[in-house]
Design a protein around this nucleic acid. Structure first.
Lengths: 129, 129
DNA sequence: CTGCACCTTCCCCTGTGGGGGAAGGTCAAG
DNA sequence: CTTGACCTTCCCCCACAGGGGAAGGTGCAG
């Protein structure tokens, strides 16, 4: 299969596949006599895995480390579990940060809504923010 | 005051002040005979306002629009209120997205934790993700 | 005179995951 | 023969808010 076909099957663009190859998520593709990349069905499976990892918010380098473990002959499950645990911790942190920010913004919003624009201190640009 | 002094008073770096000037958040500074930027106390007040806006997650261009309204002689309160409302909506959306992602990642994490690594399908890289 | 701390402009760099588009080769169909 | 759809490499581009550092001017103290 050519790159366009495979990328379509995986729901990606040819650019993305070349990028993944360059980033080490895909092994360097076999080339046809014309220099075109040649792919087998296994590539689609690998790309699906990559897509699942991306959907879980894993970075390219994290996914690369999983694939490297699999290539080394180990079941990468323990490593995947570690990465997902880290991802959960990061998500919890980000959600907490955004929630705190939201609270502060909500307070400012209330202050502005309750304020009197004509009493807004010009020298402070806006008294209520 | 020179740029270093003002930036310190505002808790910023000189680089940031030059950046804000370039971005139109600060008017072009008066220059001394040596070409150095000269600031008055009002600059610190303006920078404090900018910092409050940034702390509320407003972008540079949003803050610029507030300052432009104030410069045009209008109390920017209504505009500030609109921007904060938009910011709240964006934060709610982001929090919802991250929460949904977190749920998906948690489900994958449970699956990996409950799975048997030696039964992990090699051809799928990892059956549990 | 020499250091040192400050200032100036200028241009590139950061992280992330690709996208845009140029210049050129290849292949099958009409 | 040409058209169109592929493919190749190459290099630059995006958001975002600055940071790093070079090369050079300025001002004051010792």
């Amino acid at each position: 299969m050519l790159i366009g076909e495979v990328s379509k099957a995986a729901g990606m663009t040819p650019k993305t596949l070349r990028f993944y190859e360059e980033q080490g998520l895909l092994p360097p593709a076999r080339r046809g006599p014309n220099g075109y990349r040649q792919y087998g069905d296994d590539s689609v499976i690998r790309l699906d895995f990559i897509a699942r990892g991306r959907a879980a918010g894993l970075s390219v380098s994290q996914i690369r480390s999983i694939l490297a473990a699999r290539e080394a002959g180990n079941a990468p499950c323990a490593h995947v579990q570690d990465l997902l645990a880290g991802q959960l911790a990061e998500l919890d942190l980000k959600i907490a940060e955004l929630t705190a920010l939201r609270a502060g913004v909500a307070a400012s919003y209330e202050a502005v809504a309750a304020g009197n624009p004509s009493a807004c201190d010009q020298s402070r640009v806006c008294s209520y923010l």
